[in-house]
């Protein structure tokens, strides 16, 4: 059974953390993944840095730019995590933009993911219709779950379509924004969370964007299966370094 499916069946609210591979230092990738798991994180999104991350705000942009300066590449990432499944058992997802995957070769990329033990992909600029027509078979052949985003502006009809193509969870973007732009939730988000919860989708939802602490994590998971933290964790790495990951995660969960 795919590790994502298994994790989603656990009777708890899930905390997923995003970080940019190769940041702060090129060789931090593996230790960050291991420390996150030890701290009690349920799932990890490994960011594959891109030169032009147009859905990301300044924090993740800056971490991507630094990671690329550090010498991060697709090949290097696969090399770094080739033995990751000897030490880590939680679901691992690669999150990045489509162009680096396209240049690596979609099939070669998926094959490599399977080899190192990646469970799924999030590629925000690979639209669901293109995926369904051209790439779904390849992803499935290598056991990869492709995770799609929905936003407060996504129509119910489109959400149904995304739900039908998805097999894992749906990444529920909390507000119309780039990453790290907003913090906290208002009535608008609550109404949106309730609307989605009432749709009874076959895939559970995990909320992302705007979650930075215990309060927002609790709010988001009131309606959803879990929540994803990205920019706040990158900021923590920038300000506090890689040795206090446990304190960050405990701060969210308690």
């Amino acid at each position: 059974m795919n590790r994502i499916h298994q994790k989603l069946q656990e009777n708890k609210k899930l905390l997923s953390i995003y970080f940019t591979a190769g940041y702060p230092s090129i060789n931090d990738t593996v230790s960050i993944i291991e420390d996150l798991e030890k701290s009690g994180v349920d799932m990890i999104e490994i960011g594959l840095p891109f030169s032009d991350p147009l859905a990301d705000g300044p924090t993740i942009q800056a971490s991507s730019t630094q990671a690329l300066k550090n010498g991060m590449t697709t090949e290097k990432l696969f090399e770094q995590i080739k033995d990751i499944r000897k030490t880590v058992s939680i679901p691992l997802i690669i999150m990045g933009y489509f162009n680096p995957v396209l240049q690596y070769g979609v099939e070669a990329f998926c094959k490599k993911c399977q080899e190192v033990g990646i469970d799924g992909l999030i590629l925000p600029d690979l639209p669901v219709d293109v995926y369904a027509e051209q790439y779904k078979d390849t992803f499935e052949k290598f056991g990869l779950k492709n995770i799609f985003l929905i936003t407060p502006q996504t129509s119910n009809e489109r959400i149904q379509f995304i739900d039908s193509v998805s097999d894992g969870f749906i990444y529920m973007v909390s507000s119309a924004s780039t990453t790290g732009a907003k913090s906290g939730f208002g009535d608008e988000q609550t109404q949106y969370f309730e609307r989605i919860a009432s749709m009874q989708l076959k895939n559970p939802q995990i909320v992302g964007f705007g979650i930075s602490n215990n309060e927002t994590f609790t709010q988001a998971t009131q309606y959803a299966k879990g929540a994803i933290i990205g920019s706040a964790f990158i900021k923590h790495l920038t300000n506090k370094g890689v040795n206090t990951i446990d304190a960050f995660v405990k701060g969210i969960l308690n």
Partner: peptide, 11 residues
């Protein structure tokens, strides 16, 4: 061509 955009831009 095509439209390779994040879902946030789709509407």
């Amino acid at each position: 061509g095509g439209a390779f955009i994040p879902e946030m831009l789709y509407p």
